[in-house]
Amino acid sequence: MTLSWADVTVRLMKAETQRFRRSAIAALLMLAGTGAAGAADFVALRDIDPSIVQAMHYATPNNFTGKPVAGYENGECLVTRPTADALAKAQEKLSARGLTLVVFDCYRPTQGVQDFVDWAERKDLDTEPAKRFYAPDVPPNRLFQLGYIAHKSGHSRGGTVDLGLAEIGAKVAIGPVPATGDCRDTAATAGVRDMGTSFDCFDPRSWVGAKGLSKAQRANRKALTDAMVSAGFKPYSKEWWHFSLAAGDAGTAFDFPANAASLPDATGE
């Protein structure tokens, strides 16, 4: 659906909740300048390389918020076309070694980013099993200060992805939040290679240069990083799973649902 400036302005004026105002503002940004062209450049990763495994945690309750995240309707990886092409290049390199990429998160609607912020501002976080697993030693009042939660994300611009590795043919599955252990010793995604922590582990052990990893864990991280860097991605020092492609950044933070049916066509409609 294409919104005119008048349509969005009316929605903004009639907005009764803070979240609806944020969505209306995001729609205004989408209409501005390069916004429409950037949105039209998004694709479903499965249409570019269906061999890449998808385990999209935020479409399920099995993530650090303990519930499906706003804007994740079908658990589908959407990225800009340059990002998808680069991922296919990394996948080709890994498949020669019998490995496959496993994507945990791709495009993130801005309403999903706000969901993270709302979660981090809750007063009862320490009572939540998901928080205990994913952020076992982080006081709730330091989630922003330590950089684990942010008010903006490169994911919303389509050029950033979170991912791990698995052997080709492995049974990859998103499991429930474990009742015992935490993200430093237990993976939240079955079938993936051991990287020393689970995806989304809020702990220094997740840093690229973390100490105390086994030889196999270091080798797995290196295999992932080497493949991604060779395809043009830049790693993030505090999250082994996080990579961004500068050439794949659409330049605008979008808020359409993470669902291929919501993608604009080539004309931006």
Rank of each mutant, 00 (worst) to 15 (best):
E16F: 12
R81T: 13
T17C: 13
G33C: 03
T65G: 07
V10I: 15
F256W: 11
C201K: 06
G38I: 01
G33H: 08
L12H: 06
R218V: 14
K131H: 13
N74D: 05
Q111E: 05
T267W: 03
V113P: 04
L87M: 00
M56I: 06
S95V: 01
K152N: 13
A260G: 10
E239Q: 03
P178Q: 03
T252S: 01
R11M: 12
A135H: 06
R97C: 07
S198H: 06
N63S: 13
K211S: 02
V161L: 10
S262E: 13
K215I: 08
L28N: 09
E239S: 00
Y58A: 10
R221T: 08
Y58H: 12
F243G: 02
G268F: 07
V117Q: 02
T110A: 00
A88M: 07
T2V: 07
G112S: 09
P264M: 14
L245S: 02
G75N: 04
T160Q: 01
H151G: 09
L29R: 08
R81K: 13
M13E: 15
C106L: 06
A231L: 02
Q91R: 06
A39I: 06
P257T: 15
K89Q: 02
A187S: 15
D182P: 04
N141Q: 14
R157G: 00
H151K: 12
M13Y: 13
A266L: 11
L31V: 10
R184W: 10
G71V: 09
W241I: 00
R218F: 11
P176R: 09
P257R: 14
D85N: 12
M30A: 11
G33L: 02
T83S: 03
A37W: 13
A96C: 02
P257S: 13
H242G: 00
D41N: 15
Y134I: 03
G248S: 14
R142H: 12
T9K: 15
L12P: 03
D182Q: 05
K131R: 13
G159W: 00
A223V: 12
Y107F: 14
T9V: 13
V102Y: 14
A173E: 09
Q54I: 02
K222D: 12
A84M: 03
Q217M: 14
A216V: 15
P139V: 09
A227Q: 10
W207E: 14
D118A: 04
T83E: 03
R108D: 06
D7T: 11
K123F: 04
L99G: 03
F133T: 04
W240Q: 01
R122L: 10
D49Y: 08
L87Q: 00
V117I: 05
C201A: 08
L101W: 13
G191M: 07
D49P: 06
A24N: 06
D105Q: 14
L163F: 10
